[in-house]
């Protein structure tokens, strides 16, 4: 059986700047993986290649054994680090749009989460605050029944109380066969829900291991290890 995600010899150059340098790794189903690294380490570049938004300079990515393309996009639910939704549409219209677009979209789930976070489905997106907009986007992404969720900075602009709710949403809403790849700087907020972490430094993987391994081998939290590995 092939892995959910397989990245082999992946290199990406922007001109003469190497953003990703010969990356090789596999992700299995049913895991929550943190993609951690300082600014400019290549996290978003890697994510965009997996989602088919950038072309690699060399190497390949397969999802469930298929190359990046229509088949891979069907099973990947991606939360970008910028807003991409139409500003004039209402939340409800956006949900309808997602229903049309993705066959695995579960509108009931979306409305349920909107209710719990107290977001009115009739409000227009442009009237929402930055944090609320982020919540809406995350709800849309997590309401799909995907195999792989890729979340690029999902909680950066969200208040701590809603952060807890969102993390719980992430834990409760993915099913056992799905995996979640989360890129973030807010390590201490999310490290308790991670299975594994990938540390990315200047386009290279410097560490890929289980989080409880870090805690028992190093006697420190992932956050503390991160600060040590990437000390400026």
């Amino acid at each position: 059986m092939s892995s959910l995600l397989e990245v082999s010899s992946l290199t990406k150059k922007y001109g003469n700047v190497t953003a990703l340098n010969d990356l090789n790794f596999k992700l299995e189903s049913g895991h929550i993986i943190g993609l951690l690294g300082p600014n400019g380490s290549g996290k978003t570049t890697l994510i965009k290649i997996i989602c088919g938004l950038l072309q690699p300079t060399a190497g390949s990515v397969t999802v469930n054994g298929n190359p990046v393309g229509v088949e891979s996009k069907k099973v990947i639910s991606y939360l970008p680090d910028t807003t991409y939704l139409g500003k004039t549409a209402s939340v409800k219209e956006t949900i309808d749009y997602f229903c049309d677009f993705y066959e695995d979209f579960d509108a009931d789930r979306a409305y349920d989460m909107l209710g719990k976070l107290g977001i009115n489905p009739n409000s227009r997106l442009r009237t929402l605050s930055k944090g609320t907009k982020e919540k809406v986007q995350l709800i849309l992404v997590m309401s799909r029944r995907a195999d792989l969720y890729i979340l690029d900075e999902p909680i950066a602009g969200v208040d701590p109380a809603a952060r807890d709710y969102i993390l719980n949403t992430i834990i409760t809403n993915y099913d056992e066969n799905a995996s979640i790849l989360i890129s973030t700087h807010l390590i201490s907020d999310i490290e308790n829900i991670l299975d594994e972490v990938i540390f990315l430094k200047q386009g290279n993987i410097v560490r890929f291991c289980g989080v409880d391994e870090i805690r028992s081998d190093e006697g420190k939290s992932v956050d503390a290890l991160f600060r040590e590995v990437f000390r400026c």
Partner: peptide, 16 residues
Amino acid sequence: RELATEASVNPNTMQR
């Protein structure tokens, strides 16, 4: 799953 939600941890960790 219930316990994992209550403790805000990953279900795999709870399972372990």
